[in-house]
């Protein structure tokens, strides 16, 4: 079961690649922000899986902190950093 959990965690880690791709690709700032959201949720899942796999209860607290704070960056983005949208794609 430990191995299974870890393998799933690894799989989730891989899915983050999609998030990174979106962050790199854009095109809008909001799109890039979405990748942080993906990271947030997936990381919570990964942490919970690891907590189970290694029997480390502390990692659930880490996941809790993740869940609590992931929103802060997003809100900061929405309220502060989101300048007028420039739909430019440098690549």
């Amino acid at each position: 079961m430990q191995l299974f959990n870890l393998a799933l965690g690894l799989l989730l880690l891989m899915t983050l690649g999609g998030g990174i791709w979106r962050a790199l690709r854009g095109p809008s700032a909001a799109d890039r922000m979405l990748s942080v959201q993906v990271f947030g949720t997936a990381a919570v899942a990964v942490l919970l899986l690891l907590a189970q796999a290694f029997g480390q209860a502390a990692l659930r607290d880490v996941a809790l902190a993740f869940a609590l704070l992931a929103a802060v960056t997003a809100v900061a983005f929405v309220r502060r950093a989101w300048a007028e949208e420039v739909d430019c794609d440098p690549e």
């Binding site: 880690l13 983050l16 998030g19 990174i20 962050a23 790199l24 854009g26 700032a29 890039r32 922000m33 990748s35 942080v36 990271f39 947030g40 990381a43 990964v46 942490l47 690891l50 990692l59 880490v62 993740f66 960056t73 950093a81």
Partner: peptide, 19 residues
């Protein structure tokens, strides 16, 4: 902006590394 977003992602990844 993209740099910052990627940096935030980097930080999240760091915490997995810490674990």
């Amino acid at each position: 902006f993209r740099g910052i977003i990627l940096f935030v992602a980097f930080s999240l990844m760091m915490s997995i590394a810490w674990v």
